[in-house]
Nucleic acid binder design. Structure first.
Length: 477
RNA sequence: GGUCUCAUCGUCUAACGGUUAGGACACCAGGUUUUCAUCCUGGCAAUCGGAGUUCGAUUCUCCGUGAGAUCACCA
């Protein structure tokens, strides 16, 4: 058995958004799992919709996600070129075969005339089929008109989709569609069939929006005497509200946006995969390798899945916790607060270790660590609003801080010693931890939350802790 | 309108035709010697409707209903 070849074939008309990146992920997973080949092809035959820079954006996005391709732009390969506008002669060769067989003809109508046909059909409440208007004596095709496929077998087609199961569609789904546009470039319908064949693609995996066109492709495969590849359709990702397919208009964010928001690529992959796929167990967290190992098209859900950002955030936190400290450190370089710029790597790693379990996204880093690097401004209203501390008079709180300062000034400043000192302090002051520890925490950080108190103090260091206690006391008077 | 597809907690989903219909997110309530966004425990919550097949249907069949996709010289 020869190894499989799958592909992703984006159109460079903009960024990749989260709604369509699965069309890259699933074929990639399959190729990696079967030790096959993953091909990337750029479908740029629509010159009007081309967006400058979009191709690089797409490639960069895939690279960030870790969806690497074996053949395609930036890589090369034996079946290139991998950009459709560089393959014109391939399409013309195949078009000529169809012409020779009498299965393609020049379209004599203007777009306006076709529109009239279409409106007519609509008015009569029936489907518009171009083949009802097939000209008797079409002019010879000279390349300036559109070239149409003359569909030879108007019949019901049945095929097996690994995701959707056995599918079929009647003759209404077949028509004389355009193979080559009057600008000389092929349509998607024609080009992708030619390319998938020439590039040896064994599994064509794409979004559900193509499902109703598949009979057309089937009739073309037959006319070209090409064996059908495996044809699989992936259900849509739906907008968070409503039942519409998630698209840019519904606020689908680009993958890059999630990167900027501190989402890890492996969390994104896990999230995208688990929307519509699971391995049948209760496992929720999958590493990249586990996805590769366990993925199967047969277990892909048939119905669409709503995009739930909460779940993505949760998964991201889980994946952050899975990272080694060094790995996390390497990935989080761009997210440190500005005040951290002068801090040593050792210091930053120490702090990072403290907050790793609390990060949901990399973007949370400044909020969680700012006070380690910059002097916080005392804000006693935070104590007034605290549900434990509000019961106390300001003067009592200040006295508690004075006592704390005394105790800490003679304590060793490692986490264990600090904990002992704090425990002793609970006894001597007769306060509950909920009161005393909240107060100290606030006085040294003035932040809404922080890691365990002893760790926080140890990391700040004696000098800083004492001076901040002073500052807090002075500000409170 | 034609063609095609789909349908389990609010959301993502599990369940050889036999389960008290399971898990996760979110939410709510407790707990972990501070806070908390980590962690632990508990709670809330679902098979679209109707027939049929069957001893037995979330599961198979049919009919409804609802939702989606598509009907381009776009992909």
């Amino acid at each position: 058995m020869t190894s499989i070849r799958t592909r992703f074939a984006p159109s460079p008309t903009g960024y990749i958004h989260v709604g369509n990146v699965r069309a890259a992920l699933f074929p990639w997973l399959l190729a990696r799992q079967q030790k096959g080949t993953f091909v990337l092809r750029i479908e740029d035959t629509d010159q009007a919709r081309l967006v400058e820079g979009a191709q690089d954006l797409i490639l960069d996005t895939l690279e960030w996600l870790g969806i690497d391709w074996d053949e395609g732009p930036r890589r090369g390969g034996d079946f290139g070129p991998y950009i459709q506008t560089e393959r014109r002669e391939h399409y013309l060769t195949w078009a000529q075969k169809l012409i020779d067989k009498g299965l393609a003809y020049a379209d004599p109508y203007t777009p306006e005339e076709v529109t009239v046909f279409r409106d007519q059909a609509k008015a009569e409440k029936r489907a518009f089929l171009y083949r009802d208007h097939r000209p008797e004596n079409p002019p010879a095709w000279d390349g300036s008109q559109a070239l149409r496929f003359k569909v030879p077998n108007v019949k019901r087609y049945t095929w097996n989709d690994p995701v959707m199961g056995e599918l079929s569609a009647g003759p209404e789904a077949l028509d004389d569609f355009i193979l080559v546009k009057s600008d000389g470039l092929p349509t998607y319908n024609f080009a992708h069939v030619v390319d998938d064949y020439e590039m040896g693609i064994t599994h064509v995996i794409r979004g559900l929006e193509y499902i109703s066109s598949i009979p057309k492709y089937l009739s073309l495969y037959d006319a070209l005497e090409i064996e059908w590849p495996v044809l699989a359709c992936l259900p849509h990702i739906m907008a968070p509200d409503g039942n519409k397919k998630l698209g840019k208009r519904d606020g689908a964010k680009s993958v890059q946006e999630y990167k900027d928001q501190g989402i890890l690529p492996e969390a994104m992959l896990n999230f995208l995969a688990s929307m519509g796929w699971n391995d049948g167990t209760e496992q929720e967290i999958f590493t990249r390798n586990e996805l590769i190992e366990k993925f199967s098209l047969e277990r892909v859900q048939r119905s669409g899945a709503r995009f739930d950002e909460q779940r993505l955030l949760w998964l991201n936190g889980q994946h952050i916790r899975l990272l080694s400290l060094d790995d996390l450190y390497a990935r989080i370089t761009d997210f440190w607060p500005a005040s951290a710029s002068g801090a040593s790597e050792e210091k930053k790693k120490q702090i990072l270790a403290l907050v790793q379990d609390r990060l949901k996204t990399l973007l949370d880093l400044p909020l969680l660590t700012e006070y380690f690097f910059a002097e916080p401004t005392p804000d006693w209203t935070m104590a007034d609003d605290n549900k434990q501390l509000k019961k106390f008079a300001r003067q009592d709180l200040i006295e508690l801080l004075e006592t704390t300062k005394q105790a800490l000034s003679t304590s060793d400043f490692d986490a264990n010693s600090i904990q002992e000192t704090l425990n002793t302090l609970l006894e001597t002051t007769g306060q509950k931890p909920g009161i005393l520890f909240s107060l100290i925490r606030l006085a040294v950080s003035w932040a809404p939350f922080s890691p365990a108190l002893n760790d926080t103090l140890a990391t700040l260091g004696r000098e800083t802790v004492l001076s901040r206690l002073d500052a807090a006391i002075n500000a409170g008077k």
